[in-house]
């Protein structure tokens, strides 16, 4: 197992993702002899996990079952322990494409936060790229180093514990792309430019507030960035469900009694008037969730020209 390479069977030391149903997932560090408690009972790693195929159904002690999945950056994003606010897959997908990431890309990122985006970047730039990620919070930086090791992507990433606005990314002239998710990105735009390759590259800044976007765009223009575009992308979920809709009774219709209408019409005419009418139509449709995330952050993209 690695976050950048699939394997078929669960091994000791892997990180597996337990799918508990209803899009609820939790990561598990697989260890010989260890146990994991779930709401359906205990999973015994030695017998239930190690040697099993990823994707298998595992029956827990209380008789309930779960599926054990191979980790992916997307599953990690919805199961990781939050140490900060994180970027979700919809924004991550947009960032990955608009930064033009691919195998071999060298990327600078700050702040690392909980590492949600970092894992997605690493997946895309492996096996020949590199991620330089800067996090000013010491514990967070240490924790994420540990996770990168557990997820077997540590050879692709350098974590630096410093303040990007003061000290930059620790590299110059190497990056194809820079990502900023910090409170005052305009203070880091100069460092971002310095970190990027001479021939140019792409930059993205993620900010929840429009005032941050405003100041960042000004800084980007000042530093000679081109093609500055701000946008917002939201995920809309459609819940599939069957819906039954009643059909009202208009009473006996003399004009169209023996004419063409068949289907529900025939049902409707069965009970004349005294008994309540239960004619209805069943359809398969989707309903929106009652509430949804209506704002995550604005994404500002720009191109650094050749300098």
């Amino acid at each position: 197992m690695s976050f950048v390479e699939y394997s078929d069977f669960i091994q000791d030391g892997d990180v597996a993702i337990v799918h508990l149903g209803h899009n609820s997932v939790t990561p598990v560090k697989v260890q010989h002899g260890a146990q994991t408690q779930t709401r359906y009972g205990v999973i015994r790693h030695s017998t239930d996990l190690i040697g099993q195929r990823y994707g298998s159904k595992v029956t827990c002690s209380k008789g309930g079952w779960v599926h054990v999945l191979h980790p992916t950056p997307e599953l990690w994003t919805v199961s990781l322990p939050h140490r900060t606010q994180i970027l979700y897959t919809t924004d991550i997908a947009m960032v990955t494409m608009m930064l033009e990431l691919k195998p071999g890309s060298v990327v600078c990122e700050s702040g690392t936060g909980s590492g949600s985006l970092s894992h997605a970047i690493l997946r895309t730039i492996a096996p020949t790229g590199h991620l330089h990620t800067v996090e000013f919070h010491q514990q967070r930086a240490e924790k994420v180093v540990e996770e990168f090791k557990e997820h077997r992507v540590d050879q692709l990433v350098t974590v630096r514990n410093q303040d990007v606005c003061k000290d930059g990314f620790g590299v110059t002239g190497v990056a194809d792309a820079v990502f900023l998710d910090i409170p005052s990105p305009w203070e880091a735009v100069g460092h971002a430019k310095a970190a990027m390759k001479k021939h140019g590259g792409r930059l993205c800044s993620f900010s929840p507030c429009i005032e941050q976007v405003q100041r960042t765009c000004e800084a980007l223009t000042e530093q000679g960035f081109e093609e500055i575009r701000s946008l917002e992308v939201l995920l809309r979920v459609h819940n599939v469900r069957p819906v039954t809709l009643q059909l009202p009774d208009f009473g006996p219709d003399s004009s169209s009694d023996s004419s063409s209408q068949a289907g529900p019409e025939a049902q409707k005419e069965a009970p004349p008037s005294a008994t309540p009418n239960h004619a209805s139509l069943k359809i398969k449709t989707t309903t929106p969730p009652r509430e949804m995330p209506g704002h995550t952050g604005y994404l500002t993209f720009a191109t650094k020209p050749r300098t």
Binding site: V25, L69, I228, L231, V233, L234, V240, T285
Partner: peptide, 29 residues
């Protein structure tokens, strides 16, 4: 896709099924 979703639910063998679309808005800054 509703039909695909329904068929997959019936036949099993998949989890994390999601039917989605994205909403995209550009800004003048």
């Amino acid at each position: 896709l509703i039909e695909c979703y329904t068929k997959l639910k019936e036949q099993g063998g998949t989890v994390n099924l999601m039917l989605t679309d994205t909403w995209l808005r550009h800004y003048q800054v």
